[in-house]
Design a protein around this nucleic acid. Structure first.
Lengths: 128, 128
DNA sequence: GGGCGTTATGTTCAGGCAAACATATCACCG
DNA sequence: CGGTGATATGTTTGCCTGAACATAACGCCC
């Protein structure tokens, strides 16, 4: 996959896909966090794995939960291991659909993306 | 088309497409600036139309010129009207290809985008 | 019941980035 | 030849975000 910031890659040209709903953003960072929460079962572990503080990770989770009709992450305070978090069905679906969107873009946009990459690298084949 | 910030729109869900080449970014803002420079024939006029200072507009132009193999904007200091700027062939092509990329995404990504919009608005039709 | 790990939240501080302000240069034009 | 409008660039200021630090609540487990 792409670099630490996520995204689709073609040559050294990366595409960033970000969804806006009002002032709320939903992009590759939040999606990766979602996926890691699903794997790790913990917000703090997911945040650590991505090199961010728990506070920041939790803030992102709160934002996501607020921008969707149904929470994407369910969390539990106290309990075995001190607590934990897991993806809801909506959370898993949101991440899945975002990745699908990225995949669709990668295939449908390959041609114009290649032209742009060529314009940047100076290696233009198709001309105008 | 989308609001003042640009992007593709579906319901109140907007898609932002941004290209990264190293630390240089190329997104809807720069593309709109390019297009307006092409129309207005002036960096300052284009910047004014987008509500940004000349300095900022010029800085964006400089970035763009630096990230492509060939400059996207040619500028002239002094002369009739005090000077001006115009798009190079590369500049026009870059803007065109970016818009094409957006269009391809809009059609190819309609389905996952609709699902995400439904998950946000609470109006889910296709179920799980 | 005390320790532990996690969720949950407030507060403070510093760095970065954009806005505002300020100049300098250039070439036409009256 | 001075005024004008646009390019080109430097400097400063203010805000906003993220980082760091701090604390509380909670429920298992030993």
């Amino acid at each position: 996959m792409a670099g630490k910031t996520g995204g689709i890659m073609a040559d050294d040209l990366r595409i960033f896909l970000r969804l806006w709903a009002g002032d709320r953003k939903f992009g590759p960072g939040k999606v990766e966090l979602l996926e890691r929460i699903g794997q790790e079962g913990s917000i703090s572990a997911a945040g650590r794995a991505m090199g961010m503080s728990y506070k920041r990770a939790w803030g992102l989770v709160e934002e996501m939960n607020a921008m969707f009709a149904t929470p994407l992450v369910e969390s539990l305070r106290g309990g075995p291991g001190g607590g934990g978090a897991r993806l809801t069905e909506t959370g898993a679906e949101a991440a899945r659909q975002f990745r699908l969107l990225e995949a669709r873009l990668a295939e449908a946009g390959a041609a114009p993306l290649a032209v742009l990459a060529a314009l940047m690298s100076g290696n233009m084949s198709g001309g105008k």
